[in-house]
């Protein structure tokens, strides 16, 4: 690690002000950022901790019936506190990493990082959630812009994510054996006006919506409806753990299984 200063603001406003300092970077759970710093792959001069900001923490339900999760809420808290209102999302959070990761890592950190194999981006995109920042609201469809790339501007922080609650949803995850991140995972959310299917782990462009499956499922919500569908393998990640062709195949299997699990 290189040397850096740490700021510990207690309000969003103070955090945003602190992020105005030269080469400042937000630090949330640190489960991605700290290993990066230890490997000397990043050299921020100021880390602005989001850990002590009460208004960025917790799970609640707003008047519109949305489940609202503070940007600095840990995976463990979501797993416990969203279980009643949005069980599929709670289950996604409960399966991220290990207990240590879940008790430090946060939803804001996860979707700001937008790892192409991260879990939350699939849940956020499939739910059609809204990402709330210190300055605006961004629709999930506009937020994820490719591998490790989002709509966030320099110094902008995710303060909250608002999830419309689908009639039914399920997150199906096939593990990469070493990291136990998804090799491919699919989040299927069924709303009154249609089905949304988001895929993570598979594409070189990060999380994406599988529109063919969405159309098929919106017309006929059954595992059979997607059984014959093949995802396009051309821009899939190909690595030690799985070829692009294999990943494309898994997209179909995970989608079918998610639908089957929703009964």
């Amino acid at each position: 690690m290189y040397n850096f200063d740490v700021e510990m603001p207690t309000t969003i406003a103070d955090a945003v002000a602190a992020l105005g300092r030269e080469e400042a970077q937000p630090l949330s759970g640190g489960q991605t950022l700290i290993p990066t710093l230890k490997a000397r792959l990043a050299a921020p001069s100021v880390l602005v901790s989001l850990h002590g900001i009460p208004e960025m923490k917790g799970v609640c339900k707003n008047d519109a019936g949305q489940v609202c999760i503070g940007g600095a809420t840990t995976h463990a808290t979501v797993a416990a506190d969203a279980a009643a209102d949005y069980p599929a999302l709670a289950s996604l959070a409960a399966r991220i990493g290990d207990p240590a990761v879940r008790n430090r890592g946060t939803i804001g950190g996860s979707i700001a990082n937008n790892d192409p194999s991260a879990c939350y981006p699939a849940g956020v995109l499939a739910s059609g959630a809204t990402i709330v920042t210190n300055s605006r609201e961004i629709a999930a469809d506009d937020y994820f812009q490719g591998m490790f790339d989002t709509a966030l501007e320099e110094g902008e922080i995710v303060t909250e994510v608002k999830f419309p609650v689908p009639e039914a949803a399920h997150y199906e995850k096939h593990l990469q054996p070493a990291s136990r991140f998804p090799l491919v995972a699919v989040f299927v959310a069924k709303f009154a006006d249609g089905v949304r299917v988001a895929v993570t782990g598979a594409s070189e462009n990060g999380v994406f919506r599988w529109t063919e499956a969405e159309e098929a499922l919106s017309a006929n919500f059954s595992a059979d409806a997607v059984a014959g569908l093949k995802a396009d393998g051309s821009e899939m990640i190909s690595d030690l753990h799985g070829s692009g062709t294999y990943r494309a195949h898994l997209v179909g299997v995970m989608t079918k299984r998610a639908v089957a699990a929703m009964g």
């Binding site: 054996p177 070493a178 990291s179 690595d239 030690l240 753990h241």
Partner: peptide
């Protein structure tokens, strides 16, 4: 038998150089 794979690419770069890719 099932998990561990220390792999190099053709340039001699170690592909499984951490627990992110080397499955214990």
């Amino acid at each position: 038998a099932l998990l561990e794979n220390c792999a190099y690419d053709s340039d001699g770069q170690l592909l499984s150089a951490s627990y992110m890719d080397y499955a214990m």
